[in-house]
Amino acid sequence: MDVFMKGLSKAKEGVVAAAEKTKQGVAEAAGKTKEGVLYVGSKTKEGVVHGVATVAEKTKEQVTNVGGAVVTGVTAVAQKTVEGAGSIAAATGFVKKDQLGKNEEGAPQEGILEDMPVDPDNEAYEMPSEEGYQDYEPEA
């Protein structure tokens, strides 16, 4: 019985440690998101679009440190934060509304985080759909 109880105690310690790591990862992701939003706020009209992409990228980098179902929630929060940063930029006159959601080359930025393969159960990952990809044929 002692062996059984000791095993359960060790398992509990492992769960607590994993929860603490997840909590730490979420806190880091939130900190990076805040950094990115402050970065966007300090940019001029020309830099705002690039700044919004930076927020998304920093958040995406930190999301990889967070495991399990938390990833889905962090990704949703990050996307809403990026959308909010863009709205703030438009409201303050840093950028025109028609410039939001495009990178410096004018290509749409939507789907940055949505296409990231995420499995809350950590069982399997699927690649994003290939609808947006084109076949590449090298020139002879």
Rank of each mutant, 00 (worst) to 15 (best):
N103C: 15
V15R: 00
A19R: 04
E130N: 08
V71C: 14
T54H: 10
A19L: 15
A56R: 13
E57N: 10
K34N: 03
N103T: 14
V74L: 13
F4H: 00
G73H: 10
P117K: 05
D98Q: 07
K97Q: 04
Q99V: 09
E131I: 12
G93F: 09
N122Y: 03
V118K: 10
K97I: 11
A90L: 15
V70Q: 03
E126H: 14
G67P: 04
V48D: 00
V16R: 12
E104V: 06
Q99Y: 12
I88A: 13
N103V: 12
E126Q: 08
D98S: 10
T59K: 01
V3Y: 04
Y39G: 02
A11P: 00
K96D: 08
K32W: 12
G41M: 14
G41K: 13
N122I: 08
G7K: 01
V74Y: 03
G68S: 07
D2F: 11
A19D: 01
I112W: 13
Q109V: 15
L100T: 09
Y136H: 11
M5K: 07
T81L: 04
G36L: 02
A91C: 12
Q24P: 12
K12F: 15
V74W: 13
H50I: 11
F94N: 05
G36Q: 04
E110M: 08
D2K: 06
Q99M: 11
V66I: 12
K96G: 04
I112P: 05
D2C: 11
A85W: 03
G132F: 12
A91T: 01
V16C: 09
P117R: 06
L38P: 00
T54Q: 12
V63M: 06
E35D: 03
V49N: 07
S42V: 08
G7M: 15
D135K: 14
V63W: 13
G25W: 02
K23I: 04
D2Y: 13
Q109A: 08
G68R: 12
M1I: 00
L38S: 01
V48A: 05
P108Y: 09
K6P: 00
G47R: 13
D2L: 11
E35V: 13
V82N: 05
A17S: 12
G36H: 11
V55K: 01
E104L: 11
K34H: 06
K58G: 01
V63H: 00
T54N: 11
K34R: 13
K97L: 02
K21V: 07
K80P: 02
V70S: 00
G101S: 09
Q79C: 11
V118H: 07
V52Q: 00
T59M: 15
P117S: 06
A78P: 00
A89F: 09
D115V: 11
E104G: 03
E105M: 01
D115E: 07
E131N: 06
A78H: 11
E110H: 05
K10P: 00
E61H: 05
G93Q: 07
T59E: 01
V16G: 07
N65C: 09
A30I: 12
V52Y: 12
V55Y: 02
K102H: 04
N122D: 12
Q79F: 05
G93R: 04
G25K: 13
A19M: 14
V40T: 02
I88W: 06
A29D: 00
E130R: 01
V118E: 04
D2P: 02
A27V: 10
P117H: 03
K96T: 06
